[in-house]
């Protein structure tokens, strides 16, 4: 059971009229892993996630989510996944507790709605009408509804779009808690680089409907093995052994090297290279 990946995608394709949204995506998510699908707007993130959720048809490719094909999976499969969409505007007249309590009814082994409301930090808003919530609170409610059925796999589609930095940090803490303490497998899409870096065990960069890089935040796009750039007042050199070069420079200047910097490409450099090269 633990050997089968939570998500396995091969050659996934989806077109809308003449527009190719997903152009041959391969993706694996192991059980317990947090994977971020990172890419600019229109890269195919939402289409991919919606196909995996069973909300959208695909044109080609193999998809297995928790061992089933989402296009044909039934309600028992639905009871094992959780979905947090990016633009839910429903439930406005219910209170937070009513909404979470209502969705708990659908699942065979649901959590206590009170605990879930507490988990997402909305206990103070439990009896507030949902239309009165802020954007960040609203998204945390969506997470509460997404996890009330104890899903083995949680989908989060661009969960923090439009958040202010503080709300984003709070939201990240919640997701880390779900992944850590709760052992939930999570596939999230985002166009925020720092979000992928903060949350994900592994990042798949998607551009133009294709995965152009896939790795841990530290190794993404060959970042760990990329050549280091050493800059100083009179020069710049790429090297595999920055320590030796700095030692040479120090001897040459007879002490401090003016304007010395030693840098590996940042994740941002790698990401911008990837999306720049692909588009």
């Amino acid at each position: 059971m633990t050997d089968t990946p939570a998500v396995r995608v091969r050659g996934l394709r989806k077109t809308y009229g003449d527009t190719v949204a997903v152009a041959g995506v391969d993706l694996d998510v192991a059980a317990g892993e947090v994977v971020a699908l990172l890419g600019p707007n229109g890269a195919g993130k939402t289409s991919t996630i919606e196909i995996l959720e069973g909300h959208r048809d695909r044109d080609a490719g193999e998809v297995s989510v928790l061992g089933r094909d989402p296009a044909r999976a039934g309600l028992d499969w639905r009871a094992r996944i959780g979905i947090v969409t990016q633009d839910g505007a429903d439930l406005t007249e219910l209170t937070v507790r009513e909404a979470v309590g209502h969705f708990a009814h659908y699942y065979p082994n649901a959590r206590d709605p009170r605990e879930v409301v507490e988990l997402v930090g909305l206990t103070g808003k439990a009896t507030a009408r949902i239309r009165t919530l802020s954007g960040g609170q609203r998204r945390r409610l969506d997470v509460a509804i997404g996890v009330v059925g104890r899903p083995r796999l949680l989908f989060l589609d661009e969960p923090t779009t439009g958040f202010d930095p503080q709300a984003r940090r709070q939201f990240w803490a919640l997701i880390r808690q779900l992944a850590g303490d709760e052992g939930c497998t999570i596939l999230l899409s985002t166009h925020y680089l720092e979000e992928a870096e903060a949350l994900a065990d592994r990042v798949a960069v998607i551009v133009g409907g294709q995965i152009v890089a896939d790795g841990t935040p530290a190794t993404l796009g060959g970042r760990a093995t990329a050549r280091t750039v050493v800059r100083w007042a009179d020069g710049r050199q790429e090297t595999d052994d920055p320590a030796a070069l700095v030692a040479t420079l120090t001897r040459r200047y007879g002490g401090a090297v003016p304007g010395l910097t030693v840098s590996r490409p940042s994740l941002e450099d790698v990401y911008l290279d990837l999306i720049g090269a692909a588009s």
Partner: peptide
Amino acid sequence: TDRDDGTLRRLRGAPMP
């Protein structure tokens, strides 16, 4: 309204007959 505001989508995502 349910179709427009995401109600139907959320319900289809839940194990609801």
